[in-house]
Design a protein around this nucleic acid. Structure first.
Lengths: 332, 332
DNA sequence: TGGCAAATTGCATCCGGATGCAAAATTAGG
DNA sequence: CCTAATTTTGCATCCGGATGCAATTTGCCA
C-alpha cells in the first residue's frame, strides 16, 4: 500500500471537481448541490479523506484545541476528573492539549507551549506568574483558573468556597464539644491551602475555641503521618485534627490508629478536605469537605468556550459550594 | 492595547528584513549573519513574537504532538502516571493531545480525532478496533499499545508480564499452604484481566491446587465488596482471595474485615494487582503485583518517538517484569 | 419562451512559516 | 586588484483548506 495522506485536491481530482467544492462539502457553512455532494463524498470515502484539522486551524484562525494545565502531586496524580473536561469538550468538538506542571513551580513554560499552539483557551489548575497571564491576555487567549486566584481583571475564576467551608468545620466541631484542635496545613505557596487555614482560624475565633495548633504536612501522606507521630505525647490534649486535604488526614489516621492504638472518633476526631477515594473506605470513614471538582471543571470549560465566542464578556468569578460529608471520623 | 497576534511578517517589517530571514533565525536549520540575527531577535522580543506552531506543522509535515488515549474507570481516574508521558515528551519538545475513552468502548472516535490533528504518533491504553488501527497504519501514524494487544504487525506493544506474574502468585500462595482460592476477575473484554485470570489458573494447576472459584468484580470496589459478601457463608472454606486489581481487593477486605469481622491474613489471605495507592495504607497492607506503569509509559513514548524518526523499524514488543510486593495481607 | 433572481461552482488568494533557488554581498586566494 | 568560492539574503512557492468574488448554471414566473 503506497498510500500517502490524501488531501482535498486528491478528492477533487478523483471526483472531477474543484478543491473548493470539496472544502464546501466538508464545511458546515458551505453548500453544494446534491449530486456534487454525493460525488465528492463517494470519492472522499474511497480515499478515506478527512479534512486536516491543522490546515483548517490555520485558515480558520481557531484550533479547536483547549489547553489544560494540571499539577501532579509527587507520587500521586492530581485527582482531576479529566473526563469531566474532555467529555464536555468533545461534545463541542474541541480537544485537549495537556501540560503537567510540577506542584510547586509556576506553569509558565506550559503556558508558552500552549500559546505557540494557538489554543483557543486555557484551563489551569496550577499557579501562574503575572507575566504568563499577561501574555495570554495580550494574545487574547481566554484563561480560566480553577481553585487559583489572580488579580487580573481579564481572567475567569472557578473556585470552591474553601474559606467558608473550613470555617464551618470549626463551628461544627465546636458544636460537638471540641475545644483543642490541631490543623494540618498544606504548602505555604498554595492558595487553597492558605484559605482553608485562614477559614478554619476564623471559625475557631467565632466559636470561641482557642487558636488551633498547626503543623505543615505539605499535602502528603508522610506529612500527616509524621506530624501525628510527633504529637504522640501531647495527643491526649487534642480533641480533633483538621487536615487541609484527605491525604494528610489518612496519614494521620494510620499513625494514630495503627501505631499509637488510638480510636477514632473516640480519642480524636478527624476531618479532611476533598473527599478523595480513600475517605470513604471502611477503615477510615473520614468526615470531609467535598468540593464539586467535577462540576467546577465542567463550569470552567463552559466559561472558556463562552469567552471564545464572546471575548468581551465581563470576567466571571464563580464560587461553588462545597458539601460537608459527615462520616464516622467526626460527627456533629 | 490593540495588540493582535504578531507574525513573522510583522517582525520582518519592524526589523527591515524579509520574512524568510525571520523564519531562518527561528529555525535550528537556518543560518544568518550575527547582525541580522541580532536585529531580528530584538524586533521579535519587542513584539513578543514566537513562531506559530500550527503554521510550522503545516509546512514541516509534523505537528510535534503525540496523541494519547486513556481509559477512565467509572468514578476513578485511570491511574496513569501522565507525568511520565508528558515529562518524557516535553524534553523532546512534543506535546500531548489527550483523549479519554470510556472503559468498555473502543477508542475509535478518539483515534479519528487524533488523526485529523495529524498527531505524529499515538500512545493508547484503551481497546481499539482492527479498523481504527488499520487507519493509523494507512496514514503512517505510529501507534503504541500499552497493556493491550493487537494482531497487527505494524504496532508496537509495551505490556507487563501479566500472565506470568499471576501464575507466580498461585505458586507463592501454594507454597505457603494455601489450597482453596477465589479469583476476582475483571471484565471479560479486558485483555489484561483475562491474562491475569489465565495465568492464575495455570499456576494453580502447576501447584496442584484445585481450580479456583471465580467471580466477576468488574474491576470496581463494589464488585469486590459484594462478591465477598455473597461468599460470606462459604468463606471458611476459602484460604485466599486473589483479585485482578487492587480496587476489588480493597472492596473485598472492607467486607471481610469490617462487615464480617474476619482478620487478614489470619482467616483469609488477599492478593491484589497494580499496587495502587490504597494498597500500602496501614489497614490494608495489601500484597500485590506492581507493574512498572511509569517505566512502561516512558518506554511507550520512547518507542513512539523512535518510530517517528524511523518508520520502517521492525515492530517491537516489550514485556516488562512486574514486581511482587509482599505486605501483610499474604506472605510466602 | 424570455428575463431575472437564486443557487452552484470555480478561480484566486489568504492563513503563517519553511525552504529551494538565484541574486547580492562578503571573503579568500592569487 | 580581480576573479572564484562562499556566505547571506530575498523571492517565490508550497503545506492543506477556507472563502470572497465572479462566472456559470438552474429555476421561477410572467
Amino acid at each position: 500500500m503506497t498510500s500517502r495522506r490524501h488531501t482535498s485536491y486528491d478528492v477533487a481530482k478523483l471526483a472531477g471537481v474543484s478543491q473548493s467544492a470539496v472544502s464546501r462539502v466538508f464545511s458546515p457553512s458551505g453548500s453544494a448541490s446534491p449530486e456534487m455532494r454525493d460525488k465528492i463524498l463517494r470519492a472522499a470515502k474511497k480515499l478515506n479523506y478527512k479534512p486536516n484539522a491543522i490546515a483548517q486551524s490555520l485558515s480558520y484562525g481557531r484550533t479547536r484545541i483547549i489547553g489544560m494545565i494540571i499539577t501532579h502531586f509527587s507520587n500521586q496524580i492530581y485527582p482531576v476528573p479529566l473526563n469531566a473536561v474532555t467529555g464536555n469538550l468533545m461534545e463541542s468538538g474541541e480537544s485537549v492539549l495537556l501540560q503537567i506542571a510540577e506542584p510547586g513551580a509556576l506553569g509558565d513554560d506550559a503556558v508558552q507551549r500552549l500559546l505557540r499552539y494557538r489554543v483557543d483557551a486555557i484551563v489551569c489548575t496550577s499557579d501562574l506568574s503575572k507575566q504568563a497571564i499577561a501574555h495570554c491576555i495580550a494574545e487574547k487567549v481566554p484563561i480560566v483558573l480553577v481553585n487559583r486566584k489572580s488579580s487580573s481583571p481579564h481572567v475567569d475564576h472557578v473556585v470552591s468556597d474553601n474559606f467558608e467551608s473550613s470555617q464551618r468545620v470549626a463551628l461544627g466541631l465546636a458544636s460537638s464539644g471540641v475545644v483543642k484542635t490541631l490543623f494540618l496545613k498544606g504548602p505555604e505557596s498554595n492558595w487553597v491551602a492558605q484559605l482553608r487555614y485562614k477559614g478554619y482560624q476564623k471559625g475557631c475565633r467565632e466559636a470561641g475555641m482557642p487558636r488551633p495548633l498547626t503543623a505543615d504536612g505539605q499535602f502528603t501522606y508522610e506529612g500527616g503521618y509524621e506530624t501525628a507521630m510527633k504529637y504522640s505525647d501531647r495527643i491526649g490534649e487534642i480533641d480533633a485534627i483538621v487536615s487541609a486535604n484527605d491525604t494528610m488526614a489518612i496519614g494521620a489516621i494510620d499513625a494514630l490508629v495503627y501505631e499509637m492504638g488510638l480510636s477514632i472518633p473516640g480519642d480524636v476526631r478527624i476531618v479532611g478536605h476533598n473527599d478523595s477515594p480513600e475517605a470513604r473506605l471502611k477503615p477510615y470513614q473520614l468526615t470531609t469537605i467535598r468540593q464539586p471538582m467535577d462540576a467546577m471543571l465542567k463550569k470552567a470549560t463552559e466559561l472558556a468556550l463562552q469567552r471564545i465566542e464572546n471575548p468581551d464578556l465581563p470576567s466571571t468569578d464563580i464560587i461553588m459550594a462545597s458539601e460537608l460529608v459527615l462520616r464516622k471520623s467526626a460527627v456533629w
